[in-house]
């Protein structure tokens, strides 16, 4: 019997949870705020679904509700992607080591 592709996706999912578990425990507590903002940004990869929804099946130039919802989702996710990565960048730039001489 062939294995359902769902099982493969489930495997990826479960293994990723474990990776997430170990990776996140190794994040230094002082970077927990950037961790939240960057996880925020990457979870907006949901934009791939939004793009698919926005571009779905419109050979004529009429848009369905489904397309429009896709467009809205694209905007929301894009706010998050740009906002999330940039604000993380801004925060990380502030973390500096002690200067030896002053």
């Amino acid at each position: 019997m062939e294995i359902d592709p769902f099982i493969f996706r489930l495997s990826i999912f479960i293994l990723s949870i474990f990776i997430g578990y170990y990776v996140v425990w190794s994040v230094t507590p002082s970077l927990h705020t950037p961790l939240m903002s960057v996880t925020n940004a990457i979870s907006s990869v949901i934009i791939v679904g939004a793009i698919t929804a926005g571009l779905a099946g419109n050979s004529n130039s009429e848009f369905t509700i489904s397309n429009i919802l896709g467009f809205l989702a694209i905007s929301l996710a894009a706010v998050n992607i740009f906002g999330g990565f940039l604000v993380t960048q801004r925060m990380l730039q502030m973390y500096k080591k002690k200067k030896k001489d002053k």
Partner: peptide, 21 residues
């Protein structure tokens, strides 16, 4: 949503963010 769309990037990210939180 990643499962629905059969998209591994979304599944991996979802799992990472889920366990991180």
């Amino acid at each position: 949503i990643g499962f629905t769309l059969e998209n591994s990037a979304l599944i991996i990210t979802g799992a990472l963010v889920g366990s991180s939180g």
